[in-house]
Simulated scan of single mutants.
Amino acid sequence: MRIDLGGRTAFVSGSTQGIGRTIAARLAAAGAATTVNGRDAGRVDAVVAELRDEIEGGRIDGVAADVSTREGAATVFEALPELDILVNNLGIFSPQPVLDVDDDTWQRFWDVNVMSGIRLTRHYLPGMRERGWGRVQFIASDSALVIPEEMVHYGVTKTALLGVSRGFAKAMAGTGVTVNAVIAGPTHTEGVEDFVRDVTGGDLPWEQAQVEFMRDHRPTSLIRRFIEPDEIANMVVYLASGLSSATTGGALRADGGYVDFIVP
């Protein structure tokens, strides 16, 4: 199966590190003219330079903007009037007892994790509909389905993305534009190794430490290891392609079987 995104334009919010960076790299490697995004202009420029070195012939640019704000979103709209592929990846998380989460924190998580994607999607969908082709994805989380006690405010925003994605998909019915959510499971990103080693005692090699962590703290995982970012990106690139034309309004799991439900 060969995925060719040549001639397509793509934007990945929050893509200077972790899953977002890997998604941007995979989209560019598949041929899409891909724009990287982050708040810090220096960091955006550095990642663009790195990806251009990594991906021969890759068409990669960057837009520095905080898309959790109206002003930041407007900066992206000015730089990219039209898009074929939108990946709403931007998200923040932090553990905090739910009774200690104040109004400002709830609002911040809502603005970053939910409103950023709503604004971008609302802006780009009409053009996609007019052209008869487009792909929008929201990067959700297993926390959308299994609300973590220590991060209720985070989990709730990810649950919201499932509803938002389904609603936008209904609005695009019959247009050739698809909208989906990707439910990412426990993923090996920056800082995870230190966190896991702290939990498991700090002295184990990474391969052994992650096996013990998954066994003791994520026992429903069926792959018994952390997911690598490229395994999430593979799902995203498929959904961004013409091969996924019959997949819309879905919540597709790339969670290693962690969520102990048959559906979605």
Rank of each mutant, 00 (worst) to 15 (best):
G7T: 05
R8N: 12
Q17P: 01
A24V: 00
A25S: 07
A32Y: 11
A33P: 06
T35E: 00
N37G: 15
D40S: 10
V48G: 09
E50C: 11
R52T: 09
I60T: 04
A64C: 00
A64E: 03
A65H: 00
V67Q: 07
F77R: 15
F77Y: 15
P81C: 03
N88Y: 12
L99F: 01
D100G: 00
V101S: 00
T105E: 06
R108N: 08
I118D: 06
R122L: 13
H123M: 13
G127N: 08
R131Y: 07
R135P: 15
Q137W: 15
F138Q: 11
A140E: 09
V146Y: 05
H153Q: 12
V156D: 00
V156G: 00
K158R: 13
A171P: 04
M172W: 01
M172C: 14
N180Y: 10
E207P: 06
V211Q: 15
E212I: 06
F213L: 10
R215D: 09
R218E: 11
L222H: 02
R225F: 03
R225H: 06
I227F: 14
P229W: 08
I232V: 15
I232M: 11
M235G: 12
V237T: 13
S241M: 06
L243F: 15
T248Y: 13
L252Q: 05
L252F: 14
R253A: 04
D255V: 03
D260M: 12
I262T: 15
